[in-house]
Write a protein that binds this DNA or RNA. Structure first.
Lengths: 228, 228
DNA sequence: GATATAATTTTGATTAATCAAAATATATTA
DNA sequence: TAATATATTTTGATTAATCAAAATTATATC
């Protein structure tokens, strides 16, 4: 049985892999995401590699093995089903679900999760719109497309950033073009080779438009929100 | 914040106090109930005493302080509400609820418990019939009476045994006259000074009658089952 | 390419919880 | 009461997870 700490590391590595172009996760990124010192992460990573949950390349970083990915998807399934339950059944606010789910996901049994799934009517996605992996570890491939495939007026959600250039990622962060964020394409200028996007006014206080080159926009994977 | 191990010890001490005449819980009883070696229990008990959750009398045993009792009742509340939820909402069998509740009770937040309580309609008792302590730590005093106050035909549940004589307790265990067990009084003979009880035929395979002296029957606290 | 900077690993310690086995105290029995 | 059995505590070790700080190795800059 993996300890809850092991589960948490594996889930975090999975999430970090999702957020980078290169699938290898550097130690700094992992230790920051886990909120531990780098030395602690190194020690843990060696242990996870022995358990065959990850591949560890010293001085480079880590990537999940098939077994690690399996465990990660179990944890993601638990987390998302619990969040859905907290919101739909117990009436939690969306901002409150994460904290409690983070604790519960390490304490629930498989039986509990399957019962919750049935009780909720086998929902395909959690309250954030993220797909819930099946009990067998299958997760719906989100039909994300590069931003430059979108048209003016499209309402979209950022799925992932296919680029790990720090300057690019920093810019994305400053502009809040990070996974999960919702936008509208307010202009697509083929001649100038630019796209302009803007946060939805009712979800953001500051929503100044942001213009990006068509070339860079291919690095931003988005999916339709289904709105409008 | 108490760790889940601390929570478990405190809950266990509370339960053991309920099950003995003398409110002091000897180390052997505690270590066996916790499933750890006696030395481990001693070490932990010192820690709990420093935290002012228990009073520790070396070579004698332990008893809860007011603060310890408060924590114990929080844990009992969590456990019983979770069991109720698992049975009433998720359709668990009664025999399955304990195992999952035992894990979850250490992972849930106060918010979660209060929401579950409301969702269940503020139930007064869990599926075993045990009262659920309030959020403020009040628990309904079970209206238990000594067995000799019962009459022939009464259907009763054992609440607690007010005697810690090992032979007596062993006998009670052999006859399955332990807390939670359900019986019918089939004879009360004032002249002979005896009472005879029998397990309910549909809950027990072996249900040979058992006769006990009136004197000893005062040590067995029971409550009406509400049946018949 | 030499040096400064940043990332990573190593080392030595710490805390919570545990066990096995030795030492000690208490209770029982003969 | 002395001998034996039982309960309890102590001692020394272990494991998982962590930190701080030193040592090492990449990477970036001049």
């Amino acid at each position: 049985m993996p300890t809850s700490t092991v589960e948490q590391y594996i889930k975090t590595i999975y999430q970090q892999e999702e957020r980078c172009a290169h699938d290898i996760v550097p130690m700094k990124q992992l230790s920051e995401a886990m909120g531990v010192t780098p030395g602690t992460a190194t020690a843990m990573v060696k242990h996870l590699a022995e358990r065959k949950l990850i591949r560890y390349e010293p001085r480079k970083g880590v990537r999940l093995t098939a077994g690690g990915r399996e465990l990660a998807l179990i944890m993601v399934r638990r987390h998302r089903l619990i969040e859905t339950f907290l919101e739909n059944v117990l009436g939690y606010d969306l901002s409150e679900v994460h904290e409690d789910a983070e604790q519960l996901e390490h304490a629930v049994s498989d039986k509990f999760i399957e019962r919750i799934d049935a009780y909720l009517g086998f929902p395909p996605a959690d309250p954030h719109g993220d797909p819930i992996p099946s009990a067998e570890g299958h997760i719906a491939r989100r039909d994300s497309v590069p931003l430059d495939h979108c048209e003016t007026g499209d309402s979209i959600r950022v799925a992932r950033l296919r680029n790990d250039d720090p300057a690019f990622l920093l810019l994305m962060k400053e502009q809040r073009l990070t996974p999960g964020e919702v936008f509208v394409v307010i202009d697509k200028n083929e001649t100038a080779g630019t796209m302009t996007v803007q946060h939805n006014a009712r979800t953001r206080k500051t929503n100044t438009p942001f213009t990006i080159s068509m070339g860079n926009s291919t690095r931003i994977m988005v999916e339709p929100t289904g709105e409008q």
